[in-house]
């Protein structure tokens, strides 16, 4: 019972926060609390929400991936480039995903090869990938930050269309959430990730193929990041090398806010999803009451710091309370 309570406590706090947020924005702007509005606005932060899922896997294993923003740009540019050169949109789509997979593979194998902290490797590789994206967009003839446009309707529809009244982003997000929930919480692979996060040495000594697990996790992260970049290109109907450049900060925020410890060993897909909704609607709501994206950063930073330190103090108080109870119990004996 005790562990169940602990398991459910944080998600319910997040749900409460989301409800409070809806209440506040609802009073400021009457247009905000509108079901179709709320559903369609998921398209705005789809890339954050789906990139946060593999990030939960990575953070649960005690590592981090800063390069997802760069991989998003690279994925979208690759898709745009192949589309311009061949005119085959399916090929272009898979080229983008393949680019993401290769990027992830590079990240994972470099981390294994050098034993250097994942933060450093992915920082360096994010330079590499975003530079590559910029260079490729130069090759495609669009100088600098200009985008590659002219995508066919079938591609644009992926992020803008709807099925049975549900916007496509909602369906994509739901599908990926279920997939990742299953991977992290109901497979051997997911258990391996948690074990590696808790103690990499211990995991290795108990015969877990840590190297393979780490590389596969980074490949998954790369593919999903590239997919998020392609979704952005579809949503904005143009591919640019700097798409998703602001993503890493927000994605890590969502994951940590969702209950994953940056030191590894914990993390939950449900928490991450709720935190992504919280942050996504925060951004959307602030936009609605006409606060610019730069100023939104102030709120984002404050929410992150206050919630994490709040959780720390909450844990301190509750453990002190438990200690006191234990002492009292001993005295009675």
């Amino acid at each position: 019972m005790g562990s169940l309570k602990k398991y459910l406590l944080w998600p319910s706090v997040l749900i409460l926060l989301i409800l409070i947020e809806f209440g506040i924005f609802g009073t400021f702007s009457s247009r905000f609390l509108n079901i179709s509005n709320l559903l369609y606005s998921i398209g705005d932060f789809l890339y954050i929400a789906i990139a946060a899922l593999p990030m939960t896997l990575i953070i649960a294993s005690g590592a981090i991936d800063i390069s997802i923003g760069a991989i998003m740009g690279l994925g979208s540019i690759l898709t745009g480039l192949v589309w311009v050169k061949t005119g085959n949109i399916q090929l272009a789509f898979f080229a983008g995903l393949a680019g993401g997979a290769v990027s992830g593979f590079i990240n994972g194998s470099l981390i294994l090869m050098t034993q250097v902290n994942s933060l450093v490797i992915t920082l360096g590789s994010s330079f590499l990938f975003s530079g590559l994206a910029l260079t490729l967009s130069g090759l495609a003839g669009s100088t600098g930050f200009e985008g590659i446009g002219g995508f066919p309707d079938s591609f644009v529809n992926i992020a803008n269309g709807e099925v049975l009244g549900l916007p496509n982003p909602v369906i994509i997000l739901l599908g990926l959430i279920i997939l990742f929930y299953f991977i992290l919480h109901h497979t051997k692979f997911g258990r391996y990730l948690f074990l590696i996060g808790m103690s990499p040495e211990g995991a290795r000594y108990s015969g877990i193929p840590t190297a393979r697990v780490v590389v596969i996790t980074y490949v998954i992260s790369g593919i999903i990041a590239a997919f998020a970049g392609i979704m952005l290109a579809s949503y904005f109907t143009s591919a640019r090398s700097d798409l998703g450049a602001d993503a890493p900060l927000t994605v890590i925020t969502c994951t940590v806010l969702g209950g994953a410890s940056i030191y590894g060993g914990t993390g939950s897909i449900i928490g991450t999803t709720l935190a992504s909704l919280l942050i996504g609607y925060l951004k959307y709501g602030l936009q609605m009451i006409k606060i610019t994206s730069h100023q939104t950063n102030v709120f984002l930073g404050i929410v992150l710091i206050v919630s994490i330190s709040g959780r720390y103090f909450w844990e301190q108080i509750s453990s002190r309370h438990k200690n006191k109870m234990a002492l009292k119990h001993e005295e009675l004996l």
Binding site: I252, T253, V256, S261, I262, N297, L300, I302, I305, I308
Partner: peptide
């Protein structure tokens, strides 16, 4: 955790 704190203040 320092990475969270300073990523937060990076935005802040």
């Amino acid at each position: 955790p320092s990475i969270i704190m300073t990523l937060g203040t990076l935005a802040l």
